[in-house]
Design a protein around this nucleic acid. Structure first.
Lengths: 346, 346
DNA sequence: TCGTTTTTCTAGAACGATTTAGAAGAACGA
DNA sequence: TCGTTCTTCTAAATCGTTCTAGAAAAACGA
């Protein structure tokens, strides 16, 4: 587009008003087909590529994009097929409403950067994917009046969310393990601010993420007598799961079962076992959470949550005026596979 | 933000001009600290959350986001860790320049939808990730004057790109296979428009993607005497690789080697072999392309390409004025692992 | 004290579109 | 033929900023 070519230029060239050119693009039935044709060819000749997006957004009050907010680096976020599934579901709906997705990583360490990013982004709505409810960027969105839907259940009744009953799902795992006789557990948790490589043991307060916390509570409630340790090998990725599990497996104090708070963490644990010649489900039980596609072929016992539906539901609440529900609880299911077995008797 | 609260409202409340309020946000050193403080508190009281993004974009000519264009559904795009790596590298640079990423899937079937999406998106630049150079949306961007960088080498000398020498990399695979005595090959290719489940044999013309085509050419040039069949089990995903390989393995006419044009396709082939009790590298050779993280633990022979660097380089060309290079060729390397071995003598 | 520079602030014009209300002309029914 | 209804088009206001040029005030040097 040669600089300076606007809707006005085209209007003058054709000899009509700017409004008419605008209508030619946006409301084709408001003008005769012949005139529209003339306008379009003139636009082509002048090198005009259609109305400017920013100007349109300003005047019409619609940016044509929704923000997708998530914790931490993009690299970590999408290393989990779970996140990808969510995004795919959201994108599906977004496409129907001619809306693009604006990716906005919210670093948990540098909250300032994320907040200004959110401030400067032209978005009509925001999907909050696994972001702590306390992040200041969310306040910015609230004062700005941007509709939001979170993937975590919040406290406030006016908050919109699409979530699962984390606690109940985790309790299902707990009951399964209890039935198998397990009494000594290690839970692998995501630790976003982990910089080092050395796995660490955490308290439930240090875990931070609301959903992780709820899952731990659920486990504990179903296994009140079990010993449950929380270990993190870093952020949510296979390598972290492996690191955490290696640390546990190589210690003198092995548990009988390892629960990954996500499938990728659990898969990492399975890798660590394989390296050591241990068979999941026989020598040690491994359970995951999410049921990502590869969990099936790996034989991982896990909680299935309809992640793609989650994305779709979030999209609909944000974009489809016909959707009136504001808080949606999705069903989960314990999927038992080969990686879980009875605790060895000692 | 209560509707109607703008920079003007704040200005009136404080008793200064709108320009000054604008400066308070954008050029803090243009006004006294005391006044800035007063403006900020007034803004807070009025519920003003900072300058409107669309208005700012219109006036300043900077949208604060770059578009990421890629073929087909988001779901398929990010099922490949290769794509995720690229995005991560790009995001890294984008973050440094306070820029967000706008995801724009360009369906290859419905080119119209993608084109209007591109037309309506407020972006400063665009990263073209594995999109056929003929897509009409690219023309729209060109007339609009949006800077673009592609991940494929184009024909036009003014085009910017960050790529690898696809043909040479594939030729390296070809030489490796020739040295091992392979003369009968199946190449697993991505077929985006595949709707059915039934794998199909394609000609090189039907393959379509420029980079896939180049890789096939490279293979052929290094193995002029080999028989090379092109098979597709669907879009770029493990399941498609598995489907394609199963079809081949269960036929009467098995090749001695399978080359996946991406690692995910090759990994699918390895899965298919395992199911049938075949050992990659002994019974049949499997080679991939990309060297995604899981390739190492799977023992997959493949071409390593610095995918994250690719994303970073694209980001820098788009956003960093200090970067003057416009066409960057990255190095690749054949990584030989256990999945490739000598062809069985018959 | 007087010119000169620096700091601090402002008026008013863009930026490029969409929207509202309404005018001009064509088509229509009786 | 006349009033009415459509169709087709337009003028002018508006969206909420940032920018340019310059004014007023303060600080400075001699």
């Amino acid at each position: 587009m040669p600089p300076g070519v606007t809707i006005k230029t085209v209007a003058q060239a054709v000899g009509v008003s700017p409004s008419t050119v605008s209508n030619a693009y946006n409301k084709p039935d408001q003008l005769s087909a012949a005139l529209r044709e003339r306008i379009m060819t003139a636009a082509q000749e002048l090198g005009y590529a259609g109305p400017d997006a920013s100007a349109r957004a300003l005047r019409s009050g619609r940016a044509g994009s929704v923000g997708v907010l998530f914790t931490d680096k993009l690299a970590y976020a999408f290393s989990d097929p779970y996140a990808v599934g969510f995004l795919a579901g959201l994108a599906e709906v977004a496409e129907d409403f001619a809306t693009s997705l604006l990716l906005m990583p919210l670093s948990s360490s540098d909250t300032q950067a994320g907040t200004t990013a959110v401030q400067q982004a032209a978005i009509d709505a925001a999907a909050i994917f696994c972001v702590a409810g306390s992040h200041p960027a969310l306040d910015t969105l609230k004062t700005r009046g941007v509709p939001m839907v979170s993937t975590d259940r919040g406290d406030h009744p006016e908050l919109s969310w699409v979530a699962i009953d984390e606690e109940a799902a985790a309790a299902a795992i707990g009951r399964h393990l209890a039935r198998l006789g397990h009494k000594d557990l290690v839970v692998l948790v995501d630790n976003a601010q982990a910089a080092g490589i050395q796995p660490v043991e955490l308290t439930i307060e240090e875990v931070g993420y609301t959903d992780c916390e709820l899952r731990i509570r659920g486990l504990r409630s179903a296994m009140p007598d079990a010993r449950i340790r929380l270990i993190s090998g870093g952020h949510n990725a296979i390598a972290s799961g492996r690191a955490g599990a290696e640390w546990v497996l190589d210690s003198q104090d092995r548990p009988t079962a390892i629960v990954g708070l996500s499938d990728v963490l659990a898969l990492g644990a399975m890798e660590a076992m394989q390296t050591r010649g241990l068979v999941p489900g026989r020598d040690l039980t491994v359970v995951g959470f999410d049921d990502i596609p590869v969990a099936e072929s790996s034989g991982l016992t896990t909680i299935r949550q309809p992640i793609r539906d989650k994305g779709r539901a979030v999209g609909r609440i944000l974009l489809d005026p016909a959707t009136t529900e504001r808080q949606i609880l999705l069903a989960t299911e314990l999927v038992v596979r080969a990686s879980s077995g009875p605790a060895p008797r000692d």
